[in-house]
Design a protein around this nucleic acid. Sequence first.
DNA 1: TTAATTGCAAATGGTTTGCAATATT
DNA 2: AATATTGCAAACCATTTGCAATTAA
Lengths: 157, 157
Amino acid sequence: MDQLYDEYCRILKAAGYKHTKPRLSILEVMLENHNKHLSIEEILKLAQEKDPEIGIATAYRTLLLFEQLNMVYKLDFGDGLSRYEINEGNVGHHHHHLICLGCDKIIEAKWDLLDELEEAIQEDEHFSIVDHSLKFYGYCSECQAKDRKGEKHEERK
Amino acid sequence: MDQLYDEYCRILKAAGYKHTKPRLSILEVMLENHNKHLSIEEILKLAQEKDPEIGIATAYRTLLLFEQLNMVYKLDFGDGLSRYEINEGNVGHHHHHLICLGCDKIIEAKWDLLDELEEAIQEDEHFSIVDHSLKFYGYCSECQAKDRKGEKHEERK
DNA sequence: TTAATTGCAAATGGTTTGCAATATT
DNA sequence: AATATTGCAAACCATTTGCAATTAA
């Protein structure tokens, strides 16, 4: 089905975890939505299409496990929901996010110019960096256009 | 007492909000702890030393108000608590944080080399940046030293 | 006086947990 | 068969909200 699927199955087994239906279903969901930022609720709903028995507690436990095994990233866009994204193996450098304050859209940022900054930090502070999280808040081009037309932004919840 | 205190009192009034004891007490607490990252619970406890009547709901409402007026920053270090820090007016560019995965210590990072990256994003994506959040996860010098001695990291909750 | 603000307690909502039943190896 | 895993429901805990009482202007 997918090379990552096999790889992550192997990792699960290697770490001593069983290949259960809920785990494999959720893994499939995460791979099928590799470009999205699904919430637990969304992941559960999709997984239940494959295995209707799955409960919410298992979804939480499974995503936590996947996160610990570095199979997924946990994302937080400040909307009160934990979101997850499969780790596609671009070692250590997952992308950043642009969060639109007008319409709550999330845009992927492909730039990664943090190397300089990371080096400075490692040297000056003797802090050994493992990972980072970078979010930009602002207004997307569409919301800027709306603004120019004098329209209101959609209300943020 | 403090020039920022006066300034923020003015801002409150200007925005049509009353100068109540809870608000002024919490403002004082935030100014007296300008270099810390206090949780709501901690802010409440400190504010209650000045005004024992204050309830938790007021603390939440006040910090939300202060955040909306850009008087404080809301911080999230992933420990399940909302933390707040007074905005000392370094316009738009508050500092970044280094979060130690070994001992949960938070180190302030003074570097701000994101200008290049922000320019690239504004141009390529036509995304108008208002603010950003940058966190680095890794190990502080002390935890690295402990590691070399073969000691265990403290358990994370 | 009057409209904003507060404290309290109850409600909310995402997440975690205890436990008996079930599934994997 | 032995152990890990699950689903369920209850518990948890940070945050929000309704409302009557209080307070600032």
